[in-house]
Amino acid sequence: MNILDTVHAVAHEYPGGCESLAPRLGMSAQVLRNKVNPNTDTHHVTLMNVVDMTVKTDDDRVLEAWARERGYALIKLPTPENCADGEVIELMAKTWETNGEIGKEVNRTFEDGRVERHEVIRIRDCAWTHIKVLLGLVGRIEGMAEGK
């Protein structure tokens, strides 16, 4: 999904839609609908609108879409709070699970001897998920370190 379509989705999928989000952004619902409509030439969403929308919706999809369009992976840095042995074990199990998902997608891709674009996207999505889980695991272990 491109960045403009993502901005549109974030605004419209917010609980209560544009009617609920617009007042929090200091504009009317109609103005917000016009700004986030990728087919409207008369109103434009600004960078500050998008930043404000991202913060107030707590929705990082626009950041993720922009990173992907630019060839980057957006990874939220883990925080070390609530570090416990049980959470580390849970995260280890999650890393095994996400690693297995990558393997499943690669196998599915090569079953017919062809590699299609949508299959590459599925593999990439599984890989990014795995990377995020691995970084979460490292963050939790870092949080448990003595003498931080």
Rank of each mutant, 00 (worst) to 15 (best):
M1I: 03
G86R: 12
T57G: 08
C83I: 06
N37Y: 02
G136T: 12
V45G: 01
A84P: 00
G100M: 04
N2D: 15
R124S: 07
V50F: 03
R61N: 05
V45W: 01
H43D: 03
E105I: 00
A127Y: 05
L134E: 08
L134P: 02
D52S: 14
L4T: 07
Q30P: 00
M144T: 09
L135W: 08
S28Y: 03
P78I: 05
A22G: 06
D41A: 13
V88A: 15
N107A: 09
L91Q: 14
H8W: 07
R33V: 02
W128H: 05
R24K: 15
R117Y: 06
L137E: 07
V10N: 04
C83A: 15
E19Q: 09
M1W: 03
E19P: 00
V31Q: 03
T57A: 14
W66D: 05
K56N: 14
V115F: 03
K56W: 10
D60I: 11
E146F: 04
L32H: 02
E81S: 12
C83R: 09
L25E: 05
M1H: 07
E81L: 12
A73F: 05
D85Y: 09
T54M: 12
R108N: 11
M144D: 12
L77R: 15
T109Y: 00
E90Q: 12
M27A: 05
E97G: 10
I3K: 02
V36T: 06
E101V: 11
D85F: 12
V50E: 01
C126R: 02
V138R: 13
C126F: 00
V51W: 09
G26H: 03
V115E: 09
R117M: 09
A9W: 04
G136D: 14
P15L: 10
E105M: 02
D59P: 07
C18G: 04
E142R: 13
G113C: 11
E146P: 01
A84V: 14
A93P: 00
E64M: 13
P78E: 14
G103V: 03
M144S: 14
N39Q: 13
K104R: 08
T40S: 08
H130S: 12
G71F: 04
N49L: 05
A65C: 09
R70N: 14
I121C: 00
W66H: 07
